[in-house]
């Protein structure tokens, strides 16, 4: 089975059922299920997420990006400190980046106060963290490849029959 094709299809529609996938690829359902299993076990598929525009709900929601400056540890580089940051459940993603600070942390919280508390009480005090810069998200235009708050592109306005 072409695992790349399977990944491509799941990346476009993670809700596709094994039956759907097997039908489209012309494979046995058991084989597709086994392949997905193996992709998950090998951490090639790491999760299935839903893109939600929380602004359209009445649930309080605040997203922030935090630039974290840090000093590497002898013999361990940044990995140890990254692990310490990543373990907080408030952290939704964490990257080591080039540029003015070492890490880029993203946080999903309910209120700005919650973010401030997390930075002040948990993130900044970590050994090796030397500075933080917090950027609150004001408006989302595109998330994980999905555009928001924009006029949608026309879906299909072709003539139903053409030569």
């Amino acid at each position: 089975m072409d695992a790349m094709k399977l990944l491509q299809m799941l990346s476009e529609d993670p809700r596709a059922t094994v039956t759907d996938l097997a039908d489209i690829l012309g494979e046995q359902e058991e084989q597709v299920a086994a392949e997905i299993d193996s992709l998950e076990k090998n951490k090639i598929i790491c999760g299935y997420h839903t893109v939600i525009n929380w602004d359209k709900t009445n649930i309080d929601h605040v997203d922030a990006y935090i630039g974290v400056s840090a000093k590497p540890e002898r013999g361990k580089g940044y990995d140890k400190i990254a692990e310490r940051i990543a373990r907080f459940p408030e952290v939704s993603s964490l990257y080591l980046t080039s540029g003015t600070s070492e890490f880029l942390v993203s946080i999903n919280a309910k209120t700005m106060r919650e973010v401030a508390d997390f930075v002040g009480e948990k993130l900044a005090p970590i050994d090796g963290v030397t500075a933080t810069v917090t950027m609150f998200v004001l408006k989302k235009y595109k998330v994980n490849g999905v555009t928001m708050e924009m006029e949608a592109e026309i879906e299909d306005d072709r003539l139903p029959v053409s030569a």
Partner: peptide, 23 residues
Amino acid sequence: IRKFFDLVAEMPECISLGVGEPD
């Protein structure tokens, strides 16, 4: 295709596999 075009035009809810252009 003209004749078919006219038939299909009267049935906007149909599923068409009749186009000659990319989606």
